[in-house]
Design a protein around this nucleic acid. Structure first.
Length: 476
RNA sequence: CGGGAUGUAGCGCAGUUUGGUUAGCGCGCAGCGUUCGGGACGCUGAGGUCCCGGGUUCAAAUCCCGGCAUCCCGACCA
């Protein structure tokens, strides 16, 4: 009989990033492309991204935004209109200077983000207060020539959605910024990704180039470091002024609009790996999983394969994303391990022995507490059992991630204590004890203020609110 | 750009110190057979610009000079 060998992965060791790369490749998610920092997303990795897109897109539409598409190339002069924006992005732009075999009169940049092009069009499309709010979103690729790339977490080219909206008042713009943060990002990350993110406000140091306020959702990875999962920016009138986004109000007065922008990226695939992965590879929360259940025919004997196919159809009819694995020419152990590396939540193993007993062997990828990894479930009513199991795993994963984060987050009162706590986790420390100078000091030790929150966890209005709490950590 | 390391088969590496037969190992891949309820085994086979250029030598993956590339740590960052 074939003897199993566990994948050699060590997510808790110092070589966490190395483990991360191993999982990406062994689970067939992604690998490095031919140009420094570019990534190749393999089909299963892309399937995960498509699921993220579907879930987020539905939430974005529920907030009233519509999808549109804008150009990949942006005239350099557009970027230069907003001083802080161009200063923030210049170092990492990819610029096209030759096209059609000729030197261009004005270089075009490959979009690092689209505030500027979209601003240009908003100015054309908005005339009246009746045109507001204008709520746009685009799914696109962007390019930022980062100094040090890492697959999914920070690549030269990445995929994302970027939302851009224009509003008649500051209050409306702000409310929408927060609505996106809460109803799209936080809701998706907590309820689908099973990641208990902390929504908060970025400090001036960490703010988006050109924004007046930047909100974020921060998550803790399996090694205690933080990762920014998505951001929502109040842009004030900074872009509206320079692009001429103006409208006539009810009184016939010319007004300047208030804009927002917000984005989330393929980085979330990396977050999934680093936050939920374990020694055996990925663990994908059931609501996200492209394949929730794999029905594995143990061997091609009797009517095993036919029964498996029928079982797969039954699960599909019950609304489960199920897939049949009838590759009986590949050894059992190999297939079992492959599906585990991909993090498929439930595997139903069906062989002659199971059928003789009228059961399937249910193997769970996300084990809660000290429960058994394998259970025999009756074939009659198997779909209901599977649906219940998927729900349990979804909840179990979120509970475990929440418990881990709480355990590794320290409440402290001084800058030094915060720096120490950030060595292997997060710290909550009064913002008054840190301040702008303390923030710079922390940066020397590789520690950053991830976000500011109120004592009760709610969102601050500005960085100058009294009694704010800073969440500090090392970050990817 | 600063500090450290590495370039040898698709991937991971040994061999380089002390130059010497036909450049080797593991994984993967192909064929055949035995297997197959947790990454099977045997046999056979395919696969090489030893990063590039120059030099030394009877002889260079190995020594010398120059160049290039990649990775890790920092600065940057969704």
């Amino acid at each position: 009989m074939a003897k199993a060998k566990a994948p050699v992965l060590t997510p808790r060791a110092d070589d966490f990033p190395r483990w991360y790369q191993d999982v990406l490749q062994k689970a067939q998610l992604a690998e490095n492309g031919p140009v420094r920092g570019t990534m190749v997303i393999r089909p299963y990795g892309y399937a995960i991204w498509e699921r993220m897109q579907a879930e987020e897109d539905a939430r974005i539409k529920a907030c009233g935004a519509e999808n549109a598409y804008f150009p990949l190339f942006i005239p350099e002069s557009y970027l230069q209109r907003e001083a802080e924006h161009v200063e923030g992005f210049s170092p990492e732009l990819a610029v096209v200077t030759i096209a059609g075999g000729k030197e261009l009169d004005e270089p075009v940049v490959v979009r690092p983000t689209s505030e500027t092009v979209i601003g240009e069009f908003m100015a054309k499309w908005i005339q009246s207060y009746r045109d507001l709010p204008l709520l746009l979103n685009q799914w696109a690729n962007v390019v930022r020539w980062e100094l040090r790339p890492r697959l999914f977490l920070r690549t030269s080219e990445f995929l994302w959605q970027e939302g851009h909206t224009a509003h008649a008042t500051r209050e409306d713009a702000r409310a929408y910024t927060i609505r996106i943060l809460r109803d799209v990002y936080e809701d998706f990350m907590v309820n689908v990704l099973a990641l208990p993110v902390v929504p908060g406000l970025k400090t001036a140091r960490e703010r988006f180039a050109g924004a007046s306020n930047t909100f974020t959702c921060e998550a803790m990875m399996g090694d205690g470091k933080a990762l920014q999962m998505g951001t929502s920016h109040e842009l004030g009138q900074n872009f509206a002024r320079v692009f001429g986004i103006e409208f006539l109000d009810e009184g016939g007065t010319q007004q300047t609009a208030w804009t927002t922008s917000w984005g989330s990226t393929t980085r979330m695939v990396g977050a999934l790996v680093m936050a939920h992965g374990d020694d055996d590879g990925l663990r994908v929360p059931p609501r996200l999983a492209p394949i929730q259940v794999v029905v594995l025919a143990v061997r091609d004997e009797g009517d095993v394969v036919d029964r498996c196919r029928a079982l797969t159809d039954e699960l599909t009819a019950a609304g489960v994303r199920a897939q049949l694995d009838a590759h009986t020419d590949v050894s059992m152990g190999r297939r079992a391990t492959d599906w585990e590396l991909k993090g498929v939540p439930v595997r139903l193993e069906v062989g002659p022995r199971d059928l003789a007993e009228g059961v399937a062997t249910l193997v769970r990828r996300i084990v809660i507490g000290d429960e058994d990894r394998k259970t025999a479930v009756p074939l009659v009513g198997v779909a209901e059992a599977v649906v219940a199991e998927l729900d349990r795993q979804q909840r179990g994963l979120l509970d475990a991630a929440t418990a881990m984060r709480e355990e590794r987050t320290a409440d402290v009162t001084t800058l030094d204590a915060a720096r120490d706590a950030a060595a292997d986790g997060w710290a909550r420390v009064p913002w008054d004890a840190v301040g702008v100078d303390g923030e710079a000091e922390l940066a020397q030790a590789g520690v950053t203020v991830r976000c500011l929150v109120r004592a009760d966890g709610s969102l601050p209005d500005t960085v100058d609110d009294p009694d704010l709490v800073a969440v500090v950590a090392r970050a990817y």
